[in-house]
Design a protein around this nucleic acid. Structure first.
Length: 569
RNA sequence: GCGCCUGUAGCUCAGGGGAUAGAGCAGUAGACUUCUAAUCUACUGGCCGGGGGUUCGAAUCCUCCCAGGCGCGCCA
């Protein structure tokens, strides 16, 4: 659509004494199809020309009377707007031609120019089961890395595992007191999780436990053998469990550098902070005062000498800059950590790193229960594995009911089940909190992945029946689409590349997800109104080209969200 | 107490200066001898949290208030 806007901008700019870019910015989509395809609002010119906007629109309409462009056939005034009407044969030819020619690349750009974007996402905490709470970072981060790749960036996915910190002192204490080797072997993560929950329950009555845990963490940081061995065991068992889920979700990371990876680099950060003179001792701890920035002080070292999350994140940022020389480093982390990242960026700035502002927190809202927050330590949580399994099971049941003769039932059930969970998380603006609701998760009707997948499968079915997987290109046929449903569909397809860019620029996969719903909806309307496999050779060919283009867009779009597009369902 | 985020139809949410505020779910009534009914069509449903302001124009920007969520030195 950008190309079409540009063409209109070029024509209009000299007539309205504005820059081409300004005109393009102002162009908008009319609310109704009979108002044309793109509109220029004339309000901005009113004060300068000292004329009412409607009069200006009318004058522009006269000035352009009889003129036409490569893809628009007329411009006419309607109230204060100058409306451009597309020349649908030309427009249809252009849109379908682009999709047909580019295929899997339709929607991609090279805007990123090969620059590196490091994406920190998923990042579960070792010793805890992979809860539903972690799905957001995992799925949003994964989609963003796919979307940014499609914009020509080189993405490096890092799973910043929570494999260090005081909690491991707690785990060691709990394991020593209540651990059971047999249970650990049979169901490692579950056993570790029970120990973790038990620790917090018992610590409420016995304050000495917390103190003991801190001590054990200190020993771990000092590299004492017994502590390190247990930590390595916990880490390995947890990771093995997570890998199963990542495999199911089709996600792989470039690196699993957890927090522990930066242990060797912490001294350097502390030294740097001290050399720059931005840190002060306060009550035995080392802090950076950020009062001038209206931020609470940032603590880098506790009074017992142990480091904190922030210290490790500072080291990690510097390591990532050195190692990957990123243009941007994204942190797909919950909104509750906004302050933490503000502090981190500010400290990096104070350290004199010009790239500090390239570290960008991409926050998302909490998943909560109706009656409050999820809490791992209280045992109030839902396993992601359970959610995925139930979703796949339900998909399987629906297949059994609606399409019992389907081939490859299992892989379709997986595609639909996993797609539903993913899409549920990607389709709403990430900043909003979401209430966990089994009914909503397990709903495959309406604005869901299944809706998009179903449209895709229907198209595949049509093409199969037509006996051509990829209809051959025909200029003449492509230009013969003109019915309302066809026009609407062509236009929606033309917006697809712009939606990917908008998703990438705002780090919001929901923009793309919503657009795919729109494409699928426009297709379903078309499907009910316009038969494809008709006698008329030319029309049949035109519609085959159109649905093949829709299939292409749905497939490309779903792929960018990490969702499979089965050919039958 | 201070800071950040959110508030739009009964419910879940789009729209983030521009024409008459849109979807899905739920409800009602229809459409499968016709390319897959996981679909489509129609109807019902709104002081866009409230007050003030900026603007030719505000759901959208500013400000104050209200409600909910999340943070605010020894967790991550």
């Amino acid at each position: 659509m950008d190309r079409y806007k540009k063409e209109i901008g070029r024509v209009l700019a000299p007539l309205v004494e504005l820059e081409e870019g300004q005109v393009i910015e102002l162009l908008e989509e009319p609310p109704e199809p009979e108002m044309g395809d793109l509109a220029f609002p004339c309000f901005v010119l009113a004060s300068r020309r000292k004329q009412p906007p409607a009069q200006i629109a009318a004058a522009l309409g006269e000035a352009l009377a009889g003129r036409r462009g490569a893809i628009w056939e007329k411009a006419s005034a309607r109230g204060p707007y100058l409306n451009f009407y597309f020349d649908y044969p030309a427009f249809g030819r252009d849109v379908l031609g682009a999709i047909s020619k580019l295929g899997p690349d339709y929607g991609k750009t090279d805007r990123g120019g090969g620059e590196v974007v490091v994406i920190d996402y998923s990042s579960p905490n070792i010793c805890k089961p992979f809860g539903i709470g972690h799905i957001r970072s995992t799925v949003i981060g994964h989609a963003l890395s796919l979307i940014l790749e499609a914009q020509g960036y080189r993405c490096i996915g890092i799973n910043h595992l929570g494999d260090w910190g005081t909690q491991f002192g707690k785990m060691i204490v709990a394991y020593q007191r209540w651990g059971d080797d047999r249970e650990l072997k049979e169901d490692p993560v579950n056993h570790l999780y029970h120990l973790y929950v038990r620790f917090h329950r018992e610590a409420e009555a016995d304050g000495a436990l917390e103190e003991e845990a801190r001590l054990w963490f200190k020993r771990l940081e000092n590299g004492e053998e017994e502590a390190v061995a247990l930590w390595e065991l916990f880490r390995r068992l947890s990771l093995e469990n997570y890998e199963q889920i990542y495999a199911l979700l089709g996600i792989s990371f470039h690196h699993h550098h957890g927090e522990s990876h930066y242990n060797d680099m912490l001294d350097e950060i502390i030294r740097l902070v001290q050399e720059k003179g931005i840190a002060v001792e306060s009550e035995g701890a080392l802090i950076v005062d950020l009062d001038k920035d209206n931020l609470p002080p940032a603590m880098l070292r506790k009074k017992d000498g142990a480091t904190l999350y922030l210290t490790r994140d500072l080291a990690a940022a510097q390591y990532r800059k050195r190692t990957f020389n990123f243009a941007k480093a994204l942190y797909v982390v919950g909104a509750e950590q906004t302050l933490h990242f503000q502090q981190m960026v500010r400290v990096l700035e104070l350290l004199g790193f010009p790239w500090a502002r390239d570290c960008i927190h991409v926050p998302f809202g909490l998943i909560r229960f109706k009656d409050g927050r999820m809490s791992t330590r209280e045992g109030k949580m839902i396993l992601l594995e359970d959610v995925l399994k139930r979703s796949i099971n339900l998909a399987r049941e629906i297949i059994e009911e609606k399409n019992p003769t389907l081939a490859h039932k299992e892989s379709v059930a997986e595609a639909v089940g996993l797609g539903a969970v993913r899409f549920g998380d990607l389709s709403n603006d990430r900043i909003k909190d979401v209430e966990f609701d089994w009914e909503k998760v397990l709903d495959f009707s309406g604005e869901t992945a299944a809706y998009i997948q179903y449209a895709h499968a229907r198209i595949c079915s049509i093409l199969r029946r037509a006996g051509c997987a990829e209809p051959s290109w025909s200029e003449e046929a492509a230009a013969s689409l003109g019915q309302e449903e066809e026009k609407a569909l062509l236009k929606t397809l033309a917006f697809f590349p712009g939606k990917i860019s908008a998703s990438a620029e705002s780090y919001r996969p929901s923009i793309l997800a919503r657009h795919l719903i729109e494409v699928a909806r426009d297709f379903n309307r078309f499907y009910h109104e316009c038969p494809v496999l008709v006698e008329d050779e030319k029309l049949r060919r035109a519609r085959l080209l159109l649905v093949a283009a829709v299939r292409r867009v749905l497939k490309n779009g779903l792929a960018l969200l990490g969702i499979a597009a089965p050919e039958e369902m």
